[in-house]
Simulated assay, not measured.
Amino acid sequence: MDEITFGRVSLTLPGLDEPGLYLSNVESLENGRGIVQDFQYTGADLRALDLADVQLLTGRIADLRAAQFRLSEVRVNSVVFDTADLGNARWSDSKLSRVVFRNCRVMGATLAGLTLEDVLFDNCRLDYCTFEKNRAVGPVVFSKCSLTEASFFDCDLSGAVFDDCVLRRTEFGKGRYQGTDLRGNDLSAVFGVASLSKVIVDRVQQADMAHALLSELEVTFGDVLDGDR
């Protein structure tokens, strides 16, 4: 298995180029046995993709477009999503292990009740997404992603990494963020700074966090009031 490192965290990537592994082209991700394995699913343009109680094991999903994308109780292991447009995805109660989302557009999605282990979001558009009750049980990395007005509620992101992401009006609600690495990001416009207990930041980010907190508290500076006289 290949690995990639971000700061103090190393992710195990899907081993899709291992000797002897052959990915068969499939026309659908649905299977009567509930298991799709050693597969390649490319170029689909769908009105809707609805999957429930399915296992996707070792494969690549590329150039996928789905106006509606609904997954429930889906186990995904060693899968790469490459250049996928997943519309207003609704993904719930699933486990993802060794999964990469690369150059994906998942705007306005709701991702709820997901267990994440060795999951990488790489150069993805995740604006306006809602992450709810998701749990990192292994490395999770957001790298060069846009998370404008995304929200995290009741999530356990302990040890997760945000690497060079856009966090404009991103909301960090109640949750666990111990050891979450936020170094190298502009934190001046995030919401929920008070929830970010025990995160990792650079010293230069103290001013960003102070600015974000003061904005959230709607503090008025005295010199502004004096100027109104």
Rank of each mutant, 00 (worst) to 15 (best):
M1L: 10
M1F: 08
F6G: 02
F6K: 01
V9Y: 03
V9R: 12
S10H: 03
S10D: 05
D17I: 00
P19R: 01
L21S: 02
L23Q: 06
L23S: 06
N25A: 04
E27C: 04
E27Y: 06
S28W: 05
S28H: 01
L29H: 02
R33W: 05
R33I: 10
G34K: 04
G34I: 03
V36C: 11
F39L: 05
F39G: 05
T42G: 11
G43I: 01
G43V: 07
D45P: 00
L46H: 03
R47V: 08
R47T: 12
L51Y: 08
G59T: 01
A67G: 00
Q68I: 02
R75H: 03
V76P: 02
V79Y: 04
V79T: 00
V79C: 03
V80A: 05
F81H: 01
T83C: 10
T83Q: 15
A84S: 04
A84E: 03
L86K: 02
G87P: 00
G87K: 02
N88H: 10
A89Y: 02
A89P: 08
S92P: 02
S92K: 13
D93S: 14
S94M: 00
K95E: 15
V99A: 11
V99N: 07
F101D: 02
V106Q: 12
M107H: 04
A109C: 12
A112R: 14
G113F: 10
D118N: 15
V119S: 14
V119Y: 13
L120S: 03
D122A: 13
R125V: 05
C129P: 08
T130H: 15
E132I: 07
E132G: 04
N134L: 11
R135M: 11
A136G: 09
A136W: 03
A136L: 10
G138F: 01
G138Y: 01
P139F: 07
V140F: 04
F142L: 10
F142P: 06
F142E: 06
K144D: 12
C145Y: 04
S151N: 08
F152P: 05
C155E: 01
C155P: 01
D156F: 05
L157D: 02
S158K: 04
G159I: 04
D164F: 00
R168K: 09
T170P: 07
E171D: 03
K174C: 08
Y177C: 03
G179W: 06
D181E: 04
D181A: 02
R183T: 10
R183P: 07
D186V: 07
V190K: 05
L196M: 09
S197H: 07
I200R: 11
I200M: 10
V201H: 06
V201L: 05
R203I: 08
R203C: 09
V204F: 08
V204S: 15
Q206L: 14
D208L: 10
M209D: 05
M209W: 08
A212V: 08
L213V: 11
L213E: 14
S215N: 15
S215D: 11
S215R: 15
V219M: 13
V219W: 15
D223Q: 13
D223A: 10
L225P: 04
G227H: 06
R229S: 13
